[in-house]
Design a protein around this nucleic acid. Structure first.
Length: 772
RNA sequence: GGGCUCAUAGUCUAGCUCGGUUAUGACGUCGCCCUUACACGGCGAAGAUCCGGUGUUCAAAUCACCGUGGGCCCA
């Protein structure tokens, strides 16, 4: 019989057509029932080109979760979203159009951001579709849509009314030239010439003094403590002593802290609010009371005494003179100092405390630990990231950002008495651009309001994704059926943010945990194990790889190379070599396609043996799929298909399947077993490589999609592992013997068959052309 | 700088919980081979002081301690 498959290798071009069929037949459509399996898909962020190849691997695996669940008979809801709020697109837009956010009209800037996002998003959607992601693309959502932002704002309003939000001071990076706070990502560093002043500080009630070197003597008025390294023996006798700060004459304590470096300056460091980021950390850690020495106008405040009103640089010059006059200076060194600079105005930034909104979280940590305990993590070890984070949270969550492209904080302030007014939930508000929805201030009856200009931290948006996809506040019936959702897949680097904030917010809003399972994946690194980045030039663009090799090759690589939960290396050559397995599968199928599919047959010893091995494979795959660990089935299927089924079994039964020197009954036993085995392999592999399995399945077995089949179940056949070993050893022995005698594989040879293989004698004889 | 986490041939990986064979298997490399499913194939070979050190033990890849390196997050 002619094989139904004629091509000699799997052609990835076929994927396009299969994709079209899936789309036309809508085989992944979802309507809510009682027993739903909902995936809280991470909405990827379009931050630039190319998309990270690790992310493509990540989404491939999330799709495997969906397909596994579908074949397990679950009603799968697999939403697709795009995260579009936040800083990266603002920076991307500024660079692309060579403009500055704050010098551009806000509405116009937002439009430019939106266009940039649309472009980047289109490419990501294309990649996701081409990867065979079986999600709901027709209804994909955006976190910057009116609907989504309405949800973010409504949930904020709810929390505001419950008293969960408060205002507090927080140190910000401040660019006083452009008059704005700036994000860490907008800070560049430059080596600037500056003076390192060695100052004499008196130790209280003694005549001794210690030397402290600083580049910021003008901040003496904001000095709250002196630190030295705990190992530094020079100062051990002064620990806990009071030190008199020159000029201001205030008293501070000398303490130890590991961040003080013995070799820098004198080894003793003055800690001021705020000279640098380390000061910020120390003020928080040591719970020091901050002093605001520099104002929003970039000038010294009243606490600076006679230096008030001067710019820090002027104040520095003056205070150095005064210190010298008063004899407080030991020496002055000219040094080059790595200074944080605003990317936009190129001046050194100042760190200034400013009022920001905070969402309470400290008092919820205990509750979050309880919720965390109830959630099953895949793999288990990554629960530790959450638990460790919960242990180390020591401040509430600052949720406001002085940025443009984000969900607006829905507050209007009374122009007269500054009373904040929060509108009713259920609508999307843009306070910077809209009139206050109320007409009179509830406190002073004034009619004029100022809209809040700030936006939310993006995690305020993303942390309600389970609520958005389950139509919280929008469709109660749908919500009831879908929430809590089933599983949250995500990467391990955002456990502390996305995963944690989702737990916090969903618990606050619904009193229920958002999902029962969390699936945490590792991080994609380059082939040397280094982080990929555009600047290092080691980033791999996934799109050409997928276009060249096909989605299934990429997906099988992802499954077989990435041990679940661990970081993984991306290597193009290795991805390419994965394609060989698909070719093997293709050719096994091509061979089988020359035999009719028959419903039953009487298996002989060889058939029973391979069926027992097959059952063992099913068992192992089931174990992997239950944990959504695709590494296990991928490796097991490849091993079985290539090294057991194709290498030994097919060779053993080839002649029997052709019916040469065998009875019809013996022949049918082989054909039946061959097809049963292949059909099982295809189903087991379907979640991992959906295209090739679909193609082969339809040619060989059914008009109905393989993705609408139920996964095969374990039959609990007794294992014959020892037989497998004997067979492969015997076959090796024959092949080696023929090789050493310079015989062709089809030549006859006389070799004794071991006793244990007696039941397989006829098949082995025909396979090797053995003489009696 | 701090916390967490990982470490087995060039690469991925089994074994480690509960110490005891010659340390699994695959990719890649090299050699030979067209054998009617497949040269994107078959057969075979080489390749690992199990990151380093110290300890416990008759015995350590496996247990303990101290380092080193990578990654992630925070600063």
């Amino acid at each position: 019989m002619e094989p139904k498959i004629s091509e000699k290798a799997w052609n990835p071009e076929l994927e396009k057509n299969i994709l079209k069929q899936w789309e036309e037949n809508k085989i992944y459509e979802f309507t809510p029932e009682e027993n739903n399996f909902t995936i809280d898909t991470p909405p990827p962020y379009p931050s630039g080109r190319p998309w990270h190849i690790g992310a493509a691997a990540h989404y491939s695996q999330i799709d495997m979760i969906a397909r596994t669940a579908r074949m397990a008979g679950k009603n799968v809801y697999f939403p697709i979203g795009i995260d579009r709020n936040g800083l990266p697109v603002e920076l991307y837009t500024e660079k692309k159009h060579k403009i500055r956010m704050r010098e551009t009209e806000r509405g116009e800037f937002l439009n430019l951001c939106r266009d940039a996002l649309d472009d980047l998003e289109a490419e990501m959607i294309l990649i996701m579709k081409n990867l065979g992601i079986s999600g709901d693309f027709a209804n994909y959502y955006r976190t910057d849509s009116e609907e989504y932002r309405t949800l973010t704002q409504s949930t904020f309003i709810k929390l505001w009314k419950k008293g969960e939000v408060y205002l507090a001071n927080r140190p910000n990076n401040y660019d006083w030239v452009s008059g704005t706070t700036i994000a860490d990502a907008e800070i560049i560093y430059d080596d600037l010439q500056t003076k390192l002043v060695y100052m004499k500080f008196k130790i209280k009630d003694t005549d001794q003094e210690i030397i402290i070197a600083s580049t910021r003597p003008e901040l003496l008025c904001a000095c709250k403590t002196i630190i030295v390294n705990p190992e530094d023996e020079r100062y051990s006798k002064y620990i806990g002593k009071k030190i008199i700060v020159p000029i201001t004459n205030s008293e501070v304590e000398l303490r130890t802290h590991h961040s003080a470096k013995e070799e820098f300056g004198s080894g003793a460091v003055m800690v001021c609010s705020y000279g640098d980021q380390n000061d910020v950390a120390l003020f928080r850690e040591l719970q020091l009371e901050e002093i605001v020495a520099i104002g929003l106008d970039g000038r010294m405040t009243d606490v600076a005494g006679e230096y008030a009103g001067l710019k820090p640089k002027q104040a520095r010059t003056k205070i150095i003179e005064d210190l010298e006059t008063a004899g407080f200076v030991e020496k002055i060194e000219d040094i080059v100092h790595r200074t944080p600079i605003s990317e936009r105005s190129k001046i050194p930034i100042e760190i200034i405390p400013m009022e920001e909104y905070y969402l309470k979280q400290k008092e919820k940590i205990g509750k979050m630990k309880e919720v965390g305990k109830e959630i099953t993590f895949h793999p288990t070890m990554h629960k530790q990231i959450l638990m460790n984070w919960l242990e180390s949270i020591n401040i509430d969550w600052p949720i406001s950002r002085r940025r443009f492209y984000g969900t607006e904080i829905p507050i209007w302030y009374c122009k007269n008495c500054s009373e904040p007014h929060v509108p009713e939930p259920g609508k999307y508000y843009r306070p910077w651009n809209e009139k206050c929805p109320i007409t009179n201030c509830t406190k002073c009856k004034s009619t004029e309001f100022i809209g809040e200009e700030r936006t939310f931290d993006t995690w305020m948006d993303s942390s309600v994704s389970p609520l958005f996809i389950s139509k919280f506040n929008r469709d109660d019936e749908f919500f009831k059926k879908v929430y809590p959702v089933s599983i949250r897949p995500q990467a391990k680097d955002i456990v502390r943010t996305w995963l944690y904030y989702t737990l916090l917010r969903c618990d606050e809003l619904t009193g229920e945990k958002p999902w029962s399972e969390a699936w945490v994946m590792g991080y994609g690194l380059d082939e040397k194990g280094m982080k990929m980045s555009k600047s290092k030039g080691n980033a791999i663009d996934p799109l050409p790889v997928i276009e060249k090799l096909g989605a299934d090759t990429f997906r099988f690589w992802s499954a077989s190379e990435i041990n679940h939960g661990y970081d993984f290396r991306c290597n193009e050559q290795k991805i390419e070599s994965t394609k060989k397995f698909l070719s093997k599968l293709w050719n096994v199928s091509r061979f089988l396609s020359s035999f009719p599919v028959i419903d039953s047959g009487i298996p002989n010893a060889s058939d029973k043996w391979i069926l027992s091995e097959l059952d063992k494979l099913v068992k192992e795959c089931k174990k992997g799929y239950e944990e959504y660990n695709f590494f296990i089935p991928a490796i097991a299927i490849r091993e079985f298909t290539w090294n057991v089924f194709a290498a030994h079994y097919i060779e053993m039964v080839k002649a029997r399947a052709y019916g040469i020197d065998f009875s019809d009954e013996e022949r049918d036993g082989a054909i039946f077993t061959l097809h049963k085995t292949l059909a099982t392999i295809l189903k087991l592999l379907a979640p991992i490589t959906p295209f090739i399995t679909e193609h082969l399945w339809k040619i060989l077995y059914s008009n109905e999609s393989i993705h609408q089949q139920k996964q095969v179940s374990v039959e609990n056949i007794e294992e014959q592992t020892d037989i497998t070993k004997e067979i492969s050893e015997f076959n090796s022995k024959v092949w080696n013997e023929k090789k050493s005698q310079n015989l062709s594989l089809k030549d006859s040879i006389k070799i004794e068959i071991p006793k244990i293989l007696e039941p397989f004698k006829k098949d082995l004889k025909s396979m090797h052309n053995l003489l009696d």
